[in-house]
């Protein structure tokens, strides 16, 4: 079990709004191994991003982590002080976001933003203006190296560019270069390619897998796009309405999905080789997370729902080595 980098156990993150408590993440468990690309897939609003923000500790009010453990390198992040977490953020655990257009600060150059991070975590200097010149030069060299590593065109020049002078793909590269500059063990990528053109998407995904191969960084890749999952991830967790319903290696998820929701997702992918009159879809819609359905949250939309599904929440159980499903269809057999 030594190769496990991050272990999320029974995580509960709730948002206390005027309308009520939104149970955005309600008992999520999974783990990420060293050097692995773990995909978290699900519809919009299923709690993927909240899970990611909980891990890096950026849940803002009115959100709150109300239960569970996030064990990173053997230590529970939720028991750490804000100061300790801040030292891990950006150094051990980094994150890149969906919108490269807005994720970089428009008033500073790419270089300044990377150098700032390097100075903070390697020298303990939070204010870039107070850093000695030679030190900045040294960090600048490293920043250029990082930009080259993510195949940024003309890094010596790009480093002095402002974000608005770069294209979306180049900005996302700059983000990746920045967030990997401190050589973190875990990179959380929250829909890193959603806002980009398809060709650029492929380049960014290639860069992410390259970085894993070269730097050994584990990646938590969050997406709603199954083709992205198929392309780069090693293992996948499928999320539905704040729960993880299935975890398996990517091949198994696509070839042998077990949970009715995962099965529905797979069937909803249009295939060019099949002739179908109509695109298959999962009936119904995503539940309201203030008043989620009791028992299994998927039961109102499930074709195989049994009476127990309405009463009892299914546990995530291992039905074959490395393949976990939270569904009474399988849990029942295991219990017998």
């Amino acid at each position: 079990m030594n190769d496990i980098l991050l272990k999320v156990e029974d995580l509960h993150t709730y948002f206390y709004t005027y309308e009520g408590v939104v149970k955005a993440v309600d008992g999520v468990s999974f783990d990420i191994k060293k050097g692995e690309i773990f995909g978290l897939v699900g519809e919009t609003g299923c709690g993927k991003s909240v899970t990611a923000l909980s891990i890096i500790g950026l849940i803002d009010e009115p959100g709150k982590i109300v239960g569970g453990k996030i064990i990173f390198k053997g230590k529970n992040l939720l028991e750490m002080s804000e100061e300790e977490k801040r030292k891990i953020r950006g150094k051990e655990i980094s994150m890149i976001f969906q919108e490269p257009m807005t994720a970089l600060n428009p008033v500073y150059t790419i270089g300044d933003q990377i150098i700032e991070l390097l100075l903070l975590h390697e020298e303990g200097i939070a204010n870039i203006k107070k850093a000695p010149k030679e030190l900045k030069k040294e960090k600048r060299k490293k920043a250029i190296e990082m930009l080259r590593l993510v195949r940024m065109p003309d890094p010596e020049r790009t480093i002095d560019s402002y974000p608005h002078e770069l294209s979306g793909g180049m900005r996302q590269r700059a983000m990746i270069a920045m967030m990997l500059a401190t050589n973190p063990s875990l990179l959380i990528a929250d829909e890193p390619t959603t806002a980009l053109d398809v060709t650029v998407q492929a380049q960014i995904l290639k860069i992410l897998t390259d970085m894993r191969d070269k730097l050994g960084v584990s990646i938590l890749l969050i997406t709603h796009d199954l083709s992205v999952i198929a392309e780069v991830t090693d293992r996948v967790g499928v999320m539905y309405a704040g729960n993880i319903v299935e975890i398996a290696d990517t091949f198994t998820i696509f070839q042998n999905p077990k949970h009715p929701y995962t099965v529905g997702l797979m069937e909803a992918i249009p295939k060019i080789t099949e002739k179908k009159e109509e695109l298959r879809q999962i009936r119904g819609s995503v539940p309201n997370l203030i008043y989620p359905p009791p028992g299994c949250r998927f039961h109102p939309r499930c074709d195989y729902a049994k009476p127990i599904c309405k009463k009892e929440k299914p546990k995530l159980i291992e039905i074959e080595p490395g393949h976990f499903v939270a569904c009474h269809l399988y849990g029942g057999e295991a219990n017998e």
């Binding site: 950026l58 980094s94 807005t102 970089l104 700032e116 991070l117």
Partner: peptide, 26 residues
């Protein structure tokens, strides 16, 4: 509320740097 403030926080910068260097100038 903007994304680059989230980025600045994800970098592990202290609040005062996030507020005065990254937010205020904008």
């Amino acid at each position: 509320r903007l994304d680059y403030i989230k980025t600045a926080k994800a970098k592990g910068l202290p609040d005062r740097v996030v507020i005065y260097r990254h937010a205020l100038r904008n």
